[in-house]
């Protein structure tokens, strides 16, 4: 067992963990933060994305002991990092744009999109698609997810993100 101390969603936590414990297991099984989900066995899907010291990581591919001394933000603590209301603007945008269907990829999509906009606040549609390439969605075809990220970045509006524009290129959809 190895002792770890970290801050998760604003709260200080300390635990003895097996070195082999993955960060995502720690979050879900020890802390009960089941908002962060596991979608694959290969670190491809991005469903488990959280912020570790301010940047996005796949928490299935980090050991809990590697996060010792760090600050972790999960989807459950995201809204609290923004003091404007119950939802973070990215969560709001996903809801506005219907950026989800089954919702399984959504926690990871939102966490990655927030980290991405921090590095690139006014991305083009193409940049958004590349920025979230480590997150797989089996349902939406990505169209409305991309719209949601555009909306959260202050570009585009939710009307153009409706079902009626599915398949319309960005330039036309947002003009």
């Amino acid at each position: 067992m190895t002792r770890i101390n970290l801050t998760v969603d604003g709260a200080k936590v300390a635990d003895d963990v097996e070195p082999r414990m993955l960060l995502v297991q720690y979050l879900r099984e020890k802390l009960g933060k089941t908002g962060t989900v596991v979608g694959c066995d290969t670190s491809n899907c991005g469903a488990c994305t959280v912020h570790l010291d301010g940047t996005s990581v796949k928490s299935c591919n980090v050991l809990a002991v590697q996060a010792d001394g760090s600050e972790v933000t999960t989807i459950e603590g995201l809204a609290a990092t923004y003091d404007g209301g119950d939802l973070h603007p990215m969560q709001e945008a996903f809801r506005e744009c219907h950026g989800l269907q089954c919702g399984y990829c959504t926690p990871g999509m939102i966490m990655q999109s927030v980290a991405f906009l921090k590095e690139n606040p006014k991305p083009t549609e193409e940049e958004i698609r590349v920025g979230i390439e480590g997150n797989l969605c089996r349902c939406t075809g990505y169209h409305n997810i991309v719209r949601a990220v555009q909306l959260a970045s202050g570009q585009g509006d939710h009307q153009s993100a409706g079902a009626s524009t599915v398949g319309v290129p960005a330039e036309e959809a947002t003009s």
Binding site: G46, S56, A115, E133, N135
Partner: peptide, 9 residues
């Protein structure tokens, strides 16, 4: 190389 999350780690 890979994706953003992988590039961070």
């Amino acid at each position: 190389l890979a994706d953003e999350q992988i590039r961070h780690r």
